[in-house]
Computed example of a mutant assay.
Amino acid sequence: MLSKGFWADRTPVHEAARSGEIVQLRQLIESGACVNAVTYDSITPLHEASLRGQAQCVKLLLDAGAQVDARNIDGSTPLCDACASGSIECVKVLLSHGAKVNPPLYTASPLHEACMNGSSECVQLLIDVGANLEAHDCHFGTPLHVACAREHLDCAKLLLQAGANVNAAKLHETALHHAAKVRNAALVELLVQFGGNIYARDNRGKKPSDYSWSSSATARCLEYYEKTPLSLAQLCRLSVRRAAGHRGLDKISRLQIPPRLIQYLSYN
């Protein structure tokens, strides 16, 4: 009965938004249908359209008064759903209508969803509009944790370039632990270059190298960095970036130093 009730709770507006039936959706709105109707799990038509990348429906619903930051039973907003679908068009429409990029603490943010999906374009847009790089979800950790756990190298690099804390911990587990667990040597290399602590221990007392298979590329990479100090140039780069502070790329770009050094400090 519960399953039947769930589906019976859906309205024609939900269905039109979900399937991208723009003409039908417009007719329903003009006839007075409610654009903020919710299912038993608090899903609105705007959630449906956003999750399926129906940008025209998203705009039509918003123009008709849909609540841009409505939350479903899991706490997700339409912007979260648009990022989960990787629809940059929907993300832009929602942001232009005032969607909040930073939700309350300890819930998955739009940036988490974009990193989970591996949509680097969405990640960059969210960073540009002020997404909290250290937003912490109680299950997933920070967006960087998500990007590394899902092996989305491009997303991880964008976060790190923007100033994400490479050593942020979730139960003492860092992004490097995730990279080691998924056995991704390229991710390990990236994280170390941005100052990842190869000696960090998680709540089980294990270092990242403890999660790598012996003689694997990841194990060799971690072993190399455990035995070989970082170069002076790399240490200086990390020191300058720390001094610049959170989101310090703008400050770095204005330094009166050669462009080549600017590029080095910005990891370009």
Rank of each mutant, 00 (worst) to 15 (best):
F6C: 04
W7K: 05
A8S: 10
D9I: 00
T11K: 10
V13H: 08
A17Y: 01
R18E: 04
G20E: 02
G20F: 02
G20I: 02
I22T: 06
I22F: 05
L25K: 04
L25H: 01
Q27V: 03
S31K: 15
C34D: 11
C34F: 13
V38G: 05
Y40Q: 08
Y40H: 05
T44I: 00
T44S: 10
L46H: 03
K59A: 15
L61Y: 00
V68C: 14
S76F: 03
A84V: 00
G86Q: 10
G86S: 03
L94Y: 09
L95R: 05
K100H: 15
V101N: 12
P110L: 12
P110W: 09
E113N: 10
M116R: 07
S119L: 07
S119V: 08
V123F: 00
V123K: 02
L126V: 06
D128A: 09
D128T: 03
A135R: 03
A135W: 04
H136L: 15
H139A: 14
V146G: 08
V146H: 01
C148N: 04
A149P: 05
R150Q: 15
H152Y: 09
K157D: 02
Q161C: 14
G163Y: 03
G163N: 00
A164S: 05
N165R: 08
H172K: 14
L176D: 13
H177G: 06
H178V: 05
V182C: 11
N184Q: 10
N184T: 01
A186G: 05
L187W: 08
L187P: 00
L187Y: 09
L191P: 06
Q193Y: 05
K207M: 14
D210M: 06
D210Q: 04
Y211H: 08
S215Y: 13
S215L: 14
T218I: 04
C221I: 01
L222S: 02
L222Y: 09
Y224Q: 15
E226M: 10
T228S: 07
S231L: 10
S231G: 12
C236M: 02
A243N: 09
H246C: 13
R247I: 13
I252P: 06
P259M: 10
I262D: 11
Q263Y: 13
Q263T: 13
L265R: 04
